[in-house]
Every structure is written in structure tokens, then in C-alpha cells.
Design a protein around this nucleic acid. Structure first.
Length: 504
RNA sequence: UCCUUGAUAGCUCAGCUGGUUAGAGCGAGUGACUGUUAAUCACUAGGUCCCUGGUUCGAGCCCAGGUCAGGGAGCCA
């Protein structure tokens, strides 16, 4: 019997096993918020309805203690889930020691150190259930479309893309690297199975400390034979919309718990704009408007808004501090005001950071040099103008991976495509159409200064039935982060691995 | 690797221009209260002010070096 099934048992006797998420006492009454992994439910232990020993035990239940509770389901609109349990019997399974995570705000370092316990709190629970729905719907989409799930190896002998840092390990005395992409193997498998997708861990040893990077993350990489870049963009759009719809259909409760405004998710079900690199650059530099909006002007407006918000927050802090300075305030009210000030100060830190960042974004957008890759701020600048993910294709070939095909009509461009998520989240998908000509690939490998011998097996694919093909890679954690509107990827995975973080 | 901000009680933070015995709230413990939602109220306990060295009559505060962390850049999904 799980808490999520309670609505089916109104008026009946049930048995729940779970952990104490919160407890409040009153004379003759103990309120227990029980958590069992499926949901939360308030249980009321009444001194008149259970034995004296059981009532005493109920009072001893510390935060995160485990108990088995027997009781009657009673409808009560005020409660989470609309029901509560009148306890008839209470069995203590374990009394927990003092629980470190208080019912209060904590700093991120502390919470990350306690990640194994933090997973129990409601917000983390909701995010990771959404992650589960996303994973399930990814498999559903590809399976219904006839893709074969086929994983790439994790130990690799070569550097697929060469540029990024790899984790080196010892493979029976030889150096081996943890995979940074299954891409090349996916191409081989697509030549055998037609449509495949990989779903596995990926490792990048970049000493990045940003809200978008992990050292270990999960990547989904489909690859399809006889598909060109435009069909690839169709696939990406259908795929992402299937996943978004699955989250909207199945996770309303979780989305509400994390306070996610779903309007952008709903608007993302309409067609994704497809911009060429040239168009994207013109928009970033403010040379081209989108629906009457100019990138530079809208940033300047944003900066003005941020400055107003900073002034408002400072005024409110001053006001509340003045009130606190007057003696005679009740303790509860003091507490309320102090917490409010703490929250405001935290908001202020974020606002002040934006105040510092936006002018830099404006500068970097104005000075954007044609031919460069888009930086994090450029992605933000462009996605702020849309309420759907944006696809940018046909990139200067110099900035993209060696295996991408050139646009046959304009050799300056490689047929890569990036999907930029709205709300400032930036790149969540990178992909494109692959080069089919063996000699052109050899030239590129030399140009990128990669060891040719390591790629001979890959070049074989171009000798035996080389056909047009395309695919993409989706970073699971970046998708979770955007769909949940998280501030940082570290909350999108149960145990994040990042620079400086190997425990727990 | 670079830029930037920070480290004070179990947690979140305050601590003025260097000054005598370092503070608050939460959490914990004890007690009060029959409907609470981070309950409320009273009392109690709780400190290597990150480390090393320096300046000074005097350092939580100033200086130098280090460690760790937050945010950003580069790079990427």
C-alpha cells in the first residue's frame, strides 16, 4: 500500500510504511507528515484513540524516523492530496538521529555533501521523478519509431573529437579513455540496423565550473541511415515535443511542487524556428529583429528592469530592518522579518550578478565576430527572443567537428545543427549530417591533427556502402534542467560528478 | 587555466573605522498548549572566527601565502 493510492481507500483502514517528513505536537495530538517515496500524507495520532505507549512513541518520532502506521483514511480538503489518516496503530521501525537537513534554507555546498539525504526532500524528489518520465518517454519515442537501442563502448582507444579533455584509465597496461561520445560507433551501428539510438554515460574532463557542465552525464545519440540534415531537424523536433508532451501529461503534480510555470513548455509544442548561422549572427548583433524585438534593445530593457528590482529589494530590506529596530515586536514576527530579509538578500545576489552580466552580454553580442562559435551569452541573447527551442544550422565548418558534411551549395558551411532551449538554457542538442566521402574525411582528420590510424575502422564505413546519414546527441541533464527550469545541472542527476565533486 | 566573490555555533547569517566578555534566527534538549502545515510561546546547552606567517599595546576585522567553495569566461551536451 502506497500513499499515492490513498484516494481509492476513503473510509477504509490502511497500512503505510514510511519516513517522518515533519512532526508537530499539541497536547493530546501528534501530527506526522509521512513520506513513503510515492507521496506525502498527514497522519494524526490522537491520545484518546491509541494506547498510551503508542502515543508516547508518536511523540518520539524525530525527523526521518521510520514507522509503520495503521489508520483510517479521512477526506480533508486542507491536506496535501486531500486526505489524512486517523492513526489506529503505530509501530516504530527506527528512531532517527538528529537529521542534518533542517526545514530551512541551506547552502549548496552543505546540501551537495548531504546529497544522499537531500534526495529525500520534496523538490529533489519531484525533479528526479520528472527525469524518470523523460527517460521513459525517450525510449518510448524511439521504440515506437522503430529505432534499435544499441550502446556504444565506454572504454575507447581514440579521442572521437580530439579537442576536449579525456579521462585516462589503464586498460591492461595501455591507455584507454572514458567515452566522450558514442557518435562514431553509432554511425557503424546505423549502417547495420538502419535506425539506432544509444543511451549511455559520457565523460568530459573539463575543469568547468558553470551551471551547465558535468564531468559525467547521460547522452542519447540517435543515428539514421539515408537521412539528411532537414529530416534530422524534423526528427529532433518530433522527438523533443514527444518528451515535452509526456512530461506535461504525466508530471503535473511534480511540476507544481517545483513551481514550474509550464507556459513555455506548452508553447514549445509549436514549430521550432530554423535559423541558418548567418541569420542567427544577424539577430545576435541586433541587425535583424525577431517579431519586432531587437536583441540589444531587449537586453537594455532587461537591465533597466533588474536595476528597478534591486532598488525595490533594497528598499524593502531597509524597511523591514527599521521595523526590527523598534523594540516590542513579537518573536514570531521577528523571525518572519528576519527570514524575509535573508530571502531578499539572496535574491539581491542573483540580481546583482545579472546587473554585472548583462552589460557584458551586450558587449559580446555587439562585437560578435562572424565565423566564431556561439558563446554561452550569445545563446542566451538569441533564445530570449523566442518562446520555443530554436534550431541553428549550417555552421562555419572550421568551428565544427571533423565528421560533418559540407553544404554542397556553399562549401563554407558544415551541415551541423544545434538546438538552443529557451529561457536562457542554451544548447541541449548538437547534431548534423555526416560526411560520406572518405577522402574529405581524411583531409579533415589531418586538418584537426588527429591520429589517422585510430580512425581507419571509421573510414571503412565510407568504403562499403557509404550513404547519406545524420543524427544528433541530446544531453539528458540539460534537458531535465530546462524542463524543470533549474538553476544548475547538478540537481538534474541523483549523484552529480563535476570538477571538485566525487562524494557522495 | 583566467576573472570575480566568499569561508564566524549543527544550519543560514550579522559583527561598524582594529578595542575589552563574539551575536541573532533556525535546528537540538526541557516544559506549556486538542487541528498543526517551516505551528506558536518560555527556558537551556552549543564557538580551533578555514590554515600558516606577519603588522600592532591590541586582529574575526589589516597584509602575504595557501586550502576549499560559489558565480562567470574558455570548451561543450
Amino acid at each position: 500500500m502506497y500513499i499515492k493510492e490513498i484516494p481509492q481507500f476513503e473510509g477504509k483502514e490502511v497500512v503505510l510504511k514510511g519516513w517522518v517528513a515533519n512532526r508537530r505536537d499539541s497536547k493530546g495530538l501528534v501530527f506526522i507528515n509521512l513520506r513513503d517515496g510515492s507521496g506525502l500524507c498527514q497522519c494524526i495520532a490522537d491520545a484518546n484513540k491509541i494506547s498510551a505507549e503508542e502515543f508516547e512513541n508518536a511523540g518520539k518520532l524525530s525527523l526521518e524516523s521510520a514507522a509503520e502506521i495503521h489508520g483510517t483514511v479521512v477526506k480533508d480538503e486542507r491536506q496535501i492530496g486531500g486526505f489524512e489518516i486517523q492513526v489506529t496503530k503505530l509501530i516504530v521501525i527506527q528512531i532517527a538521529e538528529e537529521y542534518p537537513i533542517a526545514k530551512k534554507e541551506h547552502g549548496i555546498e552543505f546540501l551537495m555533501d548531504k546529497r544522499h539525504l537531500w534526495l529525500r526532500s520534496q523538490r529533489q524528489w519531484a525533479i528526479l521523478r520528472i527525469r524518470n518520465t523523460i527517460i521513459y518517454s525517450i525510449h518510448q519515442f524511439f521504440q515506437k519509431e522503430g529505432f534499435v537501442q544499441m550502446d556504444a563502448p565506454i572504454f575507447t582507444g581514440n579521442a572521437c573529437e580530439g579537442t576536449t579533455n579525456l579521462f585516462e584509465t589503464d586498460f591492461y597496461g595501455d591507455p584507454a579513455y572514458l567515452s566522450q561520445s558514442g557518435q562514431l560507433y553509432g554511425e557503424a551501428m546505423a549502417m547495420a540496423f538502419g535506425k539506432i539510438y544509444t543511451f549511455g554515460p559520457t565523460f568530459r574532463a573539463e575543469k568547468s565550473k558553470t551551471r551547465r557542465h558535468l564531468s559525467e552525464f547521460w547522452m542519447i545519440e540517435p543515428e539514421v541511415a539515408f537521412m539528411d540534415i532537414h529530416e534530422n531537424m524534423d526528427l529532433i523536433e518530433n522527438f523533443l515535443q514527444f518528451v515535452i508532451r509526456a512530461v506535461l501529461d504525466n508530471c503535473q503534480n511534480e511540476l507544481k511542487l517545483i513551481d514550474r510555470d509550464t507556459s513555455i513548455l506548452e508553447s514549445s509544442l509549436k514549430k521550432f524556428p530554423r535559423l541558418s548561422y548567418d541569420e542567427a549572427v544577424a539577430i545576435i548583433k541586433g541587425e535583424k529583429d525577431v517579431n519586432g524585438q531587437n536583441s540589444i534593445k531587449s537586453l537594455e530593457d532587461e537591465l533597466a528592469k533588474v536595476e528597478l528590482a534591486i532598488a525595490a529589494a533594497n528598499a524593502e530590506i531597509a524597511d523591514r530592518e527599521a521595523k526590527l529596530a523598534v523594540p516590542g515586536m513579537k518573536k514570531g514576527e521577528i523571525n518572519f522579518n528576519q527570514n524575509k530579509i535573508a530571502t531578499l538578500k539572496n535574491d539581491l545576489k542573483d540580481l546583482e550578478e545579472q546587473q554585472r552580466n548583462i552589460p557584458q552580454w551586450i558587449q559580446s553580442a555587439k562585437n560578435f565576430e562572424y565565423g566564431n562559435d556561439l558563446g554561452g551569452s550569445d545563446e542566451t541573447v538569441i533564445t530570449r527572443l523566442f518562446d520555443v527551442p530554436v534550431m541553428v544550422y549550417d555552421w562555419p565548418h572550421e568551428v565544427k567537428a571533423f565528421y560533418l558534411k559540407r553544404n554542397p551549395n556553399d562549401q563554407r558551411f558544415a551541415r551541423g545543427v544545434d538546438v538552443l532551449a529557451p529561457e536562457g538554457y542554451g544548447e541541449i542538442v548538437g547534431g548534423g549530417e555526416r560526411e560520406t566521402d572518405e577522402q574529405k574525411l581524411r583531409d579533415k582528420i589531418i586538418e584537426h591533427d588527429l591520429p589517422m590510424a585510430e580512425f581507419e575502422w571509421y573510414l571503412d564505413l565510407r568504403k562499403y556502402g557509404s550513404v547519406p546519414h545524420a543524427g544528433f546527441g541530446l544531453g539528458l541533464e540539460r534537458l531535465v534542467t530546462w524542463l524543470c527550469k533549474l538553476k544548475h545541472v547538478r540537481e538534474s542527476i541523483p549523484f552529480p560528478r563535476m570538477y571538485g565533486r566525487l562524494l557522495p
